[in-house]
Computed example of a mutant assay.
Amino acid sequence: MSTLIRLNKFISDSGHCSRREADKLIEQGRVNINGAIPELGTKVAEGDIVTVDGNPISASASDKTDRIYIAYHKPVGVTCTTERHVKGNIIDAIGHKERIFPIGRLDKPSEGLIFLTSDGDIVNKILRAENAHDKEYVVTVNRPLTANFIDKMSKGVPILNTVTKPCKVTMQSKMVFRIILTQGLNRQIRRMCEYLGYEVTKLKRNRIMSVRLAGLKSGQWRNLTQEEMADINRAVLSSTKTAV
């Protein structure tokens, strides 16, 4: 580490947690630098000793060979949180031997593909809205679909004090449609359907960027391949650089 970097980035790059969670740890006074409690925005210099709850945090390897990237088929009922006291949390569900955290979220009643990693930097890049990384879902609703529903879902629906971005929606069967989103608003698909008078009875994410769920049974996970990681890294190459 040749330059000063923000404490939250140092912690997330180490694989301890995401940058947002690192901020929470700092605010809670659980982080120390050289024995002193720092403030948000504090920067770390080479040689500084950083601890969380008294445990030392090591700088990440420059080539990221120590990072973990996995694809997980989240079952219905699993909650995308790293808080271990939450019953059915995603960390206990996977049981990985290393510390990992999810990239983004997938609602508890939903299932499908989600990434988990120990690389805090890639979490920030993938989640940046301007990157517009597409995610594909198959959705079942409680009553027959109409052409009007498909048209309105495609053009944008007013939810959460905004209008959703135009997206690709195709009818799969009488009560099932496929949707490709580049947004990640809270419960977006469910809220969009509710606005149009429909209730989602099943929601499954089967693709994130170039990575597909195919081959993973519910509850199973696998490491992302070198080819998949190369595609992801190319996709986030233009991402705004994170602050140092």
Rank of each mutant, 00 (worst) to 15 (best):
P166T: 09
E199A: 10
D13A: 12
G29T: 13
S12H: 07
S218M: 03
C17H: 03
Y195K: 12
H73N: 15
T79F: 06
R30G: 06
N89T: 11
L7F: 03
G120R: 04
V141F: 15
G120E: 07
D151K: 15
I180H: 05
G95P: 00
S110G: 03
R99K: 15
V50E: 09
V76F: 04
I150H: 07
R30L: 15
Q172L: 14
R222A: 07
G120A: 09
T3V: 11
A147P: 02
Q28N: 15
Q226N: 14
I37M: 10
E27A: 14
A71K: 00
L203Y: 11
R234C: 05
C80K: 07
V86A: 08
D23C: 10
G104I: 11
S58H: 14
L40N: 08
G54N: 05
D66G: 04
D151Y: 13
N34I: 13
M229L: 15
K64R: 14
K74R: 07
G197W: 05
K152V: 04
A243K: 15
P102Y: 06
Y198Q: 02
D121I: 06
L4S: 14
G219L: 08
S62N: 10
S18W: 13
I122G: 00
M209K: 05
A132C: 00
A71Q: 00
K64E: 15
